[in-house]
């Protein structure tokens, strides 16, 4: 903890922080007015037992049954290559904080999966975060108290089902005007491979089809709300920023729709943040590969 934070904590300890009586009374009054509850079904304590039974059932199915039945063994072949029991942990945090410079970088690692896909992602993430941390430290030395900088990295496991895994890394740079961008990593657990946007589609047309869809959506939004701006083909600007490449950022939402994600400033001014657009299944079902429909 830095010196200033310590100072704040000390001051807090010195002060009296009791809850005023009027508030305590109000709390008691509210509590006393609560009606009785009907006691219902399962309490928390029984849940672990249920899970234990379920887990042992799964164990039986996976281990014992295949040996008993040829049919079942065949069914096993369809089980995903990468176990669904994959998890992501923060293995490292780069942290620095003073009045002018802030760094807080969480480094995730995929665990529970011995696959080259997971290894590749872990290595890539490791390199990216190290690069950002090194760059921050260089700037810190160079700039010192003459300027400000901030770098914040965190992550989210967007999807982790039997068939699919998506890890989203968010990078936020705060120096002068701020910048936010994402890196998405996807693993198709069924074949154990890393997936990029182009891998979802049967033809290279996908970029154009998606871009057309996105432009339509953007224009519709702008027509409804004049405060929203996207850099869609515009006679005045003479430029169109809506182009997607093979690796563009995306994820699947919980309804199984494709969601395209843009970095800050990629297709719109900073005030629009990092826009996302849902592509309805119907719009792309004929160009999606069968396994992704």
């Amino acid at each position: 903890m830095n010196v200033f934070d310590k100072y704040i904590k000390e001051k807090i300890d010195e002060e009296d922080h009791s809850v005023p009586d009027s508030v305590k009374e109000r709390i008691e009054q509210s509590i006393s007015e609560l009606p009785e509850r009907e006691s219902k079904v399962i309490k928390f304590r029984t849940l672990p037992k249920v899970i234990a039974i379920a887990a042992s059932f799964v164990f039986v199915c996976l281990v014992i049954l295949p040996n008993c039945s040829a049919v079942y063994a065949q069914a096993l072949e369809k089980i995903p290559v990468i176990g669904s029991i994959v998890r992501v942990v923060t293995i490292r945090n780069y942290f620095y904080s003073d009045d002018y410079h802030q760094m807080d970088i969480d480094v995730p690692k995929i665990e529970g999966s011995e696959s080259s896909a997971a290894d590749y992602i872990n290595k890539d993430v490791d390199e990216l975060t190290k690069l950002l941390a090194d760059r921050f430290n260089e700037d810190l030395e160079e700039i010192g108290d003459e300027g400000h900088s901030g770098i914040f990295v965190d992550y989210e496991v967007v999807t982790n089902t039997e068939k699919w895994f998506t890890l989203k890394i968010r990078v936020h740079e705060a120096a002068g005007s701020s910048n936010t961008y994402y890196r998405f990593y996807h693993i198709d657990k069924v074949n154990g491979k890393i997936v990029e946007l182009k891998d979802l589609f049967t033809s290279d047309d996908f970029a154009k089809v998606l871009a057309d869809n996105l432009r339509k959506q953007m224009k519709k939004i702008m027509a409804k709300d004049s405060s929203k701006i996207y850099w869609v083909e515009n006679a005045e600007i003479g430029q169109d920023f809506v182009t997607l490449d093979d690796k563009h950022n995306f994820y699947w939402d919980k309804d199984g729709n494709l969601v395209i994600v843009f970095d800050k400033y990629e297709v719109a001014p900073g005030s629009m943040g990092t826009p996302e657009f849902v592509i309805e299944k119907g719009a792309i079902s004929d160009i999606l590969k069968p396994e992704y429909r």
């Binding site: 922080h17 809850v19 508030v23 305590k24 709390i27 609560l34 509850r37 399962i42 309490k43 928390f44």
Partner: peptide
Amino acid sequence: MIDKDTFCEQIRLHEKTMYYL
């Protein structure tokens, strides 16, 4: 699911935090 007594107990436990927020 928690019962009324546990709920009230938890409320009282967090009275300071609730007030501060």
